[in-house]
Write a protein that binds this DNA or RNA. Structure first.
Length: 220
DNA sequence: CTAGCAATCGTTTCCGAACT
DNA sequence: AGTTCGGAAACGATTGCTAG
């Protein structure tokens, strides 16, 4: 299984366009074309694209499940999406994005859950889409557009930490289950120390980016 | 440049009313 | 009494924006 890369992102757009989404749901409609993010020298005229959120959210969570499935299997476990376990504070609205469980059922008792992942990933690079030719084009890496994806954002970190603590304080069963945050961007300097303390404190066992070299362009 | 508030979309849940 | 319907409200996901 490969790490997150440009092909992963292109595949998201292609599958979404083919199956259920219109270009307007996935791209900013700027004067000179459709863009995944606003390039640094351009403005979105105040519009904030929201229709992509749920779609990319689901895609990344599924992608992570597939990514970790072989590892889970080696451990005689299953990687499962949207795991619900009321004992751990994981309800239908606030479920575990991905978890390693002893069975592949969505609804699990606490004792079956061995590892919890919180996915905080999205599109990292910028792309343009041509309405006429249907062509998807790489426009530049994360430094060339205005968006801050994934755990590069402080509030994404706060949400991840908050959700983890919420699990920790839900009961005795949840105290021992490791929690790992998955992203596809670097983190801010200001959080580098804190993630170590979070680990020492036993709240979160790891922050992992599945996108090794986001600012190096690979041939596609 | 960073932290974090505000905004919107899609989905789920809630809750009273209407209906067997 | 139990079920179903439907609008309102809540919530989670991501991203723009701007004060400091």
């Amino acid at each position: 299984m490969e790490f997150w890369n440009k092909e992963t992102e292109i595949r998201f757009f292609e599958e979404a366009l083919k199956n259920f989404a219109s270009p307007e749901q996935l791209f900013y409609d700027l004067t000179d074309g459709h863009f995944a993010y606003a390039p640094k020298n351009k403005t979105t005229k105040g519009q904030t694209l929201q229709s992509r959120n749920a779609l990319i959210g689901q895609y990344t969570e599924r992608w992570c499940k597939d990514f970790f499935q072989p590892i889970a299997n080696d451990l005689k476990l299953h990687a499962v999406n949207s795991v619900v376990c009321p004992e751990l504070g994981l309800t239908n609205t606030t479920d575990a994005d991905v978890a390693f469980c002893t069975t592949n059922s969505t609804s699990q008792p606490a004792k079956n859950i061995k590892l919890i992942f919180e996915v905080k990933m999205s599109i990292v690079n910028n792309y343009s889409y041509d309405d006429v030719t249907k062509e998807l084009k790489f426009e530049g890496d994360v430094k060339t557009h205005k968006g801050n994806p994934s755990i590069l954002r402080s509030d994404a970190m706060l949400k991840a930490i908050g959700k983890s603590i919420n699990i920790r304080v839900s009961g005795v069963e949840s105290a021992k289950i490791p929690i790992i945050i998955l992203g596809n961007s670097p983190i801010t300097d200001s959080y580098k120390k804190k993630v170590d303390f979070l680990k020492q404190a036993g709240v979160i066992q790891g922050f992992v980016s599945l996108y090794p070299n986001p600012t190096i362009s690979f041939a596609s």
